[in-house]
Amino acid sequence: MTSAISAQGLAKDFGKVRAVRKVDLEVARGEIYGFLGRNGAGKTTTIRMMLGLIRPSSGTIALFGESVRERRIAALKKVGFLVESAAAYPNLTVRENLELQRRLTEAPKGAVESVLERLALGEYADRRSGHLSLGNKQRLSLARALVHSPELLVLDEPANGLDPAGIVEIRGLLRSLADSGITIFMSSHILSEIAQLADRIGIIHEGRLIEELGKNELAKRKPLYIELSVDQPERAAAILGERLALREISPGEGGSLRISDAAARCADIARELVTAGIGIDRLLPVEENLEERFMRITGGEA
């Protein structure tokens, strides 16, 4: 079966600026793919090439096996999208904006009412979109992307402008869409959103796709250090150095100890300290989260 998205050697130059460099990407059908990158990393340019809004300088991109460059209309038939900011015709109501989309995507007549209900936009249906809040405009854009029941959703920052409750709601919606077999390709600055939703994550930096993490790799977190709070920190450090040969022990916050030694195990530490009669308040293994991993890979500070 062909992939939902397949890009080979995708590159885009704007004059001397190399926005995207030789990106190879495969997104399987039914997968939720999170696309991460800092501002200016090349996320939106990649998404725009995917939707045929920008022509690649080199390389190819196909959606469901149809080349976006050579067969744009066929490639985009099964695609719903939200690119950057939410936009709608301000003089038209929410229902009219969706009706416009329905006509242009040749969706069935009941599609507008169904998507209004799904996105909880019913009470705003007859309000002009120019009078909507940013969050509801974002909902409208998502509704527009869903009107024709696409098989692939390409979403650039779908949580933009949504309040925490709205984010949780949209997460649930995207999860239910993915469960029904829709492929979702989404970029977001909210890393926790991506971590909770995505089956796979690609990190783009300076135009290059520098890392891809699968669900298993996302679950396996790199241990960073062990945080230890005890009643006698200096004596505890000496005992751990002497009995467990731990060398990388440094003072942490609020009088705690930070054990960065790769050989350190919580069970061994607890046993030795209890044996020595030292009271333990806290013994916590700290692992690298997606945000820290992202910052480490892209050269930022965690």
Binding site: L51, L53, I73, A74, K77, V79, Y89, R144
Partner: peptide, 18 residues
């Protein structure tokens, strides 16, 4: 021009329509 000032040009041009 309204498609650009209202930010809808990208929505229009990415539709599967000539």
């Amino acid at each position: 021009g309204r498609e650009y000032s209202e930010g809808t040009a990208k929505n229009m041009l990415a539709l599967p329509v000539s």
